[in-house]
Design a protein around this nucleic acid. Structure first.
Lengths: 159, 159
DNA sequence: TCTTGAGCTCAAGTTAGGTTTAGAAATTAC
DNA sequence: GTAATTTCTAAACCTAACTTGAGCTCAAGA
């Protein structure tokens, strides 16, 4: 394996612990861009080992592949990324990551005030329709712990 | 809607913000056990509003439905759960939750020592094959940031 | 050279967590 | 008492993130 020839998908898989099929899938998702050798086989930069690792780490934090693609898009495609390149995208990543952790901690603390205390009546439940939408999966507002904004609660005779 | 007759699936959906289809799905997953009225329609306990809310909150923390079923299995099926019942399962939940947050924070701090510093050479990378498997999605060990245990790294001529 | 492992493409399958649809029956509203 | 909602079941469909399989080609070692 001459140094200038790039590394094979199998070697990349071995070095990262990823399945070969997963790497091909990541390519399809635009997370990595190998070139092809004369025989049509994929060749990767050595730096892609680190790129794959970054993807795996970000996934552990719960980021989706499109989000991760967003983090990585600032990495140079043409040349090997430098320390500074990585430091720059890590910083962006770190910001999102702090947000995610903060959301979870906030949610936990609210939980302490709601379920944790055992009161459960919760006219002042902070978990109800939480402001931080980042933690929510999907679409519209979700009313938690059985409470709804003002009027709606009146529909029910005092519980 | 006489108080003793239980609530309909539509009302439960309205009170929680969940889709009717989602509630039926949760029933299929064993997360709630409605009974049927004379006409074969599902009737839920009023307390199931809170049960659904608990499911939604736990999902925000990234727990799977089987995990949540585990949290809920200690809630009494026959009678309305008391404060104490909820406090008890919340405590168990809180434990898992603390673990999850701790894992994320640890991962973040390791990231600071790895990518964040820009060194990236990482002979001492703590993210590599992290001990805390709880944060990992699946199967075998994953070797992160391109490092592998001892011998494997020798396969590569010094990078 | 021959063989065997590694890689290729494309399509289909898998799991989680649901949603949508269709046609029929029950319930509620007027 | 009728009309409009709701609810029912079962099956099909959906997205994300992959894996598996079929059929074929490429590359590396004895």
């Amino acid at each position: 394996m001459p140094p200038s020839a790039g590394i094979s998908i199998g070697y990349l898989a071995e070095r990262t612990g990823l399945a070969v099929s997963a790497i091909r899938y990541y390519e399809a998702q635009g997370l990595v861009e190998p070139w092809r050798n004369a025989g049509g086989q994929r060749r990767f930069h050595r730096a892609d080992i680190r790129r794959m690792s970054f993807i795996m780490i970000a996934q552990q934090f719960g980021f989706s592949l499109p989000e991760i693609r967003g983090f990585l898009k600032d990495l140079p495609g043409g040349r090997t990324p430098t320390k500074e390149d990585w430091a720059r995208i890590s910083e962006g990543f770190r910001t999102h990551l702090d947000q995610r952790i903060e959301t979870l901690v906030k949610l936990r603390d609210n939980l302490d005030g709601c379920i944790g205390c055992g009161c459960l009546s919760l006219p002042n439940c902070k978990l109800y329709n939480p402001e931080d939408r980042a933690a929510q999966k999907g679409q519209g507002p979700r009313y938690l712990m059985g409470d709804r904004p003002e009027t709606a609660a009146a529909a029910e005779n005092g519980h």
